[in-house]
Design a protein around this nucleic acid. Structure first.
Length: 473
RNA sequence: GCGCCCUUCGUCUAUCGGUUAGGACGACAGCCUUUCACGUUGUAAAGACGGGUUCGACUCCCGUAGGGCGCGCCA
């Protein structure tokens, strides 16, 4: 028998779900799926000052948008404080923890002094072996873990390898605050144990915590979960991911028009690889995902690559499905609600018909939105600079010659119109571009658009002719 | 300051002692073309540095430099 894999994603609800968290969740999710296990979601909300309900909503919405699901209800870590206290008391009773009567000011001084003397900044163990009878009156103690002072703590990490940390560098951390609330390292250990977590996958910024947690596991006689500490994501400059570089909430990526499956693909490829494969479906990711192929060095977030991947997914998504995603996206986009309000059945039909030409030119849904703009425009269309230029430079004349021809068209289909216009161009000894660009300008108000005959067809005879005449008169 | 980790084209990466060091994004050039895209062809582009080990190192070891993370009664 093999025990089922249980992973967990454990964000603290102090802000949006940032991109690094999204990738951590993706890895946990993919790993659990691959092994037929499950991923749990635990909200680390023991910091009552900074945790907010909005942040919890943002995390859940972000994960949902990314298409990452979890087993059961999200667990509130704060909801388990009684259990955490119980374990802290147990450790205390066993002599594996002790009461510390230092005040925050004492500790602050201790740190300042250590720093001034260029010594490592650590708790000096003042109360480690001191008799509790010496406790100052009226001071509520915190409980500290009695960490081993000699030897070393070893973390067998699937990504980092065997990491050895000298115990002398780890001090006695507080596990229960003087107000009776547990701290992170205690809560995490207790929860992971109680929830049956078998595999912990999280950012390397937790590597030192892993050592302290390992010590707590051992003190409790619990089995240490299998660990993987994945490298962090950096900004394009190699330093921290700043806001303008991508340290945005996943909802920002949604607003920028990225598709969830493209995000999954891109994020997975950041730090993990499967040979030379660049584009792979989520199913393939699940099938291929492994901890061994996660690299150890930090990766830089690259919007250009993300755009490319996103463009690929946009192009390869079936029209109807893409249209549905586009409509869902609109409420999250700048100016999207106004566009959404103009969408009725007729417009949906037009969008669907225009989608093949539109999606080939869009790397994001925002670009798709811009590309579709001409369908929504009201006559007389505003012309951008280049379009106005085209109309001015002989465009109007070309259109004047074209209008009677188009009016006589019996079949208003892209194919028929194309042969009609091409024949006209040939008869006049004109290059097609001389006619196509003015048409594009008049029809869309811009100098770029999908194939011009498709534009004519989608717009329909009346609207198209109207737009053309607007530019001739 | 102390501890841990990292270092292959600009970026993401492949390589798991023997390769003309491969792919992708981006860049540049060409082709395609009614615009923009798409597509397609090609070009430039990398083992931080210094020592070892070895018949042979990008790959193993040591050092140096650079970078990251951690060192809260935050998580």
């Amino acid at each position: 028998m093999s025990s089922p894999v249980v992973t967990r994603f454990a964000p603290s609800p102090t802000g949006y779900l940032h991109i690094g968290g999204g990738r951590t969740a993706l890895f946990n999710w993919a790993y659990a799926r691959k092994l037929g296990g499950k991923m749990l979601l635990r909200i680390e909300d023991t910091d009552r000052e900074r945790s907010t309900a909005d942040a919890i909503d943002a995390i859940i919405e972000g994960l949902t948008w990314l298409g990452l699901d979890w087993a059961g209800e999200p667990v509130s870590q704060y909801g388990r404080v009684m259990r955490h206290r119980e374990v802290a008391e147990q450790l205390l009773a066993q002599g594996k923890a002790y009461r510390c009567y230092c005040s925050p000011q004492d500790l602050e001084e201790m740190r300042a002094k250590a720093e001034a003397e260029k010594r490592p900044i650590r708790y000096d163990g003042t109360w480690r072996d001191r008799d509790p009878s010496e406790a100052p009156a009226g001071v509520k103690p915190a409980i500290r873990f009695r960490a081993p002072q000699e030897g070393e703590t070893v973390i067998e990490d699937a990504v980092q390898g065997r990491v050895v940390i000298p115990n002398k560098d780890l001090d006695d951390l507080i596990i229960l605050r003087s107000d009776g609330n547990p701290t992170y390292n205690l809560s995490v250990v207790v929860d992971d144990h109680d929830m049956g977590v078998t595999h912990i996958i999280r950012g390397v910024d937790h590597l030192t915590n892993a050592a302290r947690q390992t010590q707590i596991y051992m003190a409790m006689g619990w089995r240490v979960p299998h660990m993987s500490h994945i490298p962090l994501i950096h900004g394009p400059d190699g330093a921290k991911l700043s806001k303008r570089h991508g340290a945005l909430g996943v909802e920002a990526y949604r607003a920028m028009g990225y598709l969830p499956e493209a995000m999954r693909n891109y994020l997975a490829r950041l730090g993990w690889s499967h040979g030379d494969d660049e584009i792979f479906s989520t199913e393939q990711l699940v099938e291929w995902f492994n901890l061994e192929s996660i690299g150890k060095s930090a990766a830089r977030f690259d919007f250009a690559k993300l755009e490319n991947v996103n463009g690929h997914y946009i192009r390869h998504t079936p029209d109807a499905s893409l249209l549905a995603q586009f409509v869902d996206f609109l409420p999250h986009a700048e100016g999207g609600k106004a566009m959404l309000a103009q969408i009725d059945d007729a417009m949906m039909a037009k969008l669907l018909r225009a989608m093949p030409g539109l999606k080939e030119r869009a790397k994001t849904l925002v670009e798709l939105m811009k590309g579709a703009q001409f369908l929504f425009a009201q006559r007389p269309l505003p012309m951008d600079d280049k379009a106005a230029q085209i109309i001015r430079d002989g465009g109007a004349e070309a259109l004047a010659g074209l209008i009677p021809l188009l009016e006589s068209a019996e079949d208003w289909s892209a194919l028929a119109l194309e042969s009609l216009v091409k024949a006209h161009a040939e008869a006049q000894g004109l290059k097609l571009g001389k006619l196509a660009q003015p048409l594009r300008a008049a029809l869309t108000g811009t100098s770029t658009s999908p194939g011009i005959f498709d534009v004519l067809e989608v717009l329909g005879r009346d609207e198209a002719l109207g737009r053309l005449k607007d530019q001739v008169s």
